[in-house]
């Protein structure tokens, strides 16, 4: 559709007198121009917001970044008292909590999506997905409060000692069971990313044509073999997008993580040890940051987080857009 439409005449203009028609046409052109202007205006304001966001985050963190250079990214120390600022440990903490959250949420989310899309009867699948959708609406602060007050004692007294006593995997959870920890933060992140994971994977599975399922069944596959070998592989790009967008969400969550991770900017020695992420550090350090370099360094953490999440989300969006294109070959070949 072109935006040049001032040539379109109002139909009623034909019936009225010449003078009125000319007047009407003039008003029409004016209105049309005004409409074009505001429409472009809306888009321009939005574009300006995006650009301003990038500029102001970059600008406000420039003091810290010029002082530490690119080394800010991997310098391991975050010790404002000594005037040492580096994002390294926090980047590791962010990636670690996100990875553990994904270990939890990907199998559960995918299993749930498969259950809803392939296995459950309609009367059950509908209400269940509505409930899981409602979880997405729960504010992160409420999840954080629940994690802090309800889950922390359970983790300190039951979950963490149990995990530490496990054979083979126990070493991952060794050390004092303290409650607030990388593990607890990951569980809270898993809860928060679960609706994204379920909804997007379910959409991807549902988009696989019935013909793929029936092809497998007609060869003698069991229902589960059809799901596992025909449906899930065909939905792969959509599922990858779901995971990627869940990763983006998990990396960027700050307030709930800050409430349950223990906020110790050091390399965690085990999953039950306290840690810190970029987001949790921003939440905790911001109020106490000294004006100037301190504040600029905290904002620089935000710049690093912005880079990470934008890269991940752009990848996820690209995957979403590419999804469903795999059968283009068939469509083209049929003619």
């Amino acid at each position: 559709m072109s935006s040049d439409t001032t040539g379109v005449l109002p139909r009623e203009g034909v019936a009225v007198s010449g003078v009125r028609a000319a007047l009407l046409q003039k008003r029409t052109r004016l209105g049309e121009h005004a409409y074009t202007v505001v429409r472009w205006g809306g888009a321009a304001v939005f574009a300006a917001v995006v650009v301003a966001l990038l500029i102001s985050v970059a600008g406000s963190s420039s003091q810290a970044l010029t002082r530490s250079g690119v080394g800010f990214l991997w310098s391991g120390t975050w010790n404002p008292a000594a005037g040492e600022y580096g994002a390294g440990i926090l980047v590791v903490g962010t990636l670690l909590t996100t990875a553990v959250a994904m270990v939890i949420v990907v199998p559960i989310g995918l299993g749930t999506a498969a259950f809803l899309s392939e296995l459950a009867p309609g009367w059950l699948a509908g209400p269940l997905s509505t409930l899981i959708g409602l979880l997405a609406a729960v504010p992160s602060i409420v999840v954080g409060l629940w994690g802090l007050i309800v889950l922390t004692p359970i983790f300190a007294n039951q979950v963490e000692p149990f995990l530490a006593s496990m054979p083979l995997l126990g070493w991952l959870f060794r050390g004092e069971a303290y409650g607030p920890s990388v593990l607890l933060a990951s569980v809270v992140l898993a809860v928060m990313t679960l609706p994204t994971m379920v909804a997007l994977s379910r959409t991807a599975l549902a988009a696989v044509p019935v013909a793929d399922r029936e092809a497998a069944l007609a060869l003698g596959a069991t229902r589960w073999q059809a799901v596992r070998k025909a449906v899930i592989p065909a939905a792969r790009s959509g599922i990858q997008a779901a995971v990627t967008l869940a990763v983006g969400r998990a990396m960027g969550e700050s307030i709930a993580v800050a409430m349950v991770i223990g906020n110790r900017p050091a390399l965690p020695t085990s999953l039950t040890a306290p840690g810190a992420t970029l987001g949790s550090a921003i939440v905790n350090q911001f109020a106490e940051a000294s004006p100037g370099l301190g504040t600029s360094s905290v904002i620089a953490l935000g710049a690093v987080l912005l880079l990470l999440t934008v890269a991940v989300n752009a990848g996820g969006q690209a995957l979403l857009r590419s999804g469903g294109g795999h059968r283009a070959g068939t469509a083209g070949a049929l003619r």
Partner: peptide
Amino acid sequence: FSADVLAGVPSIIIGIFAYA
């Protein structure tokens, strides 16, 4: 595309933006 990516930008960064 930028709307979709902005929708995924952490809210804390938007807070920093408003602050700055």
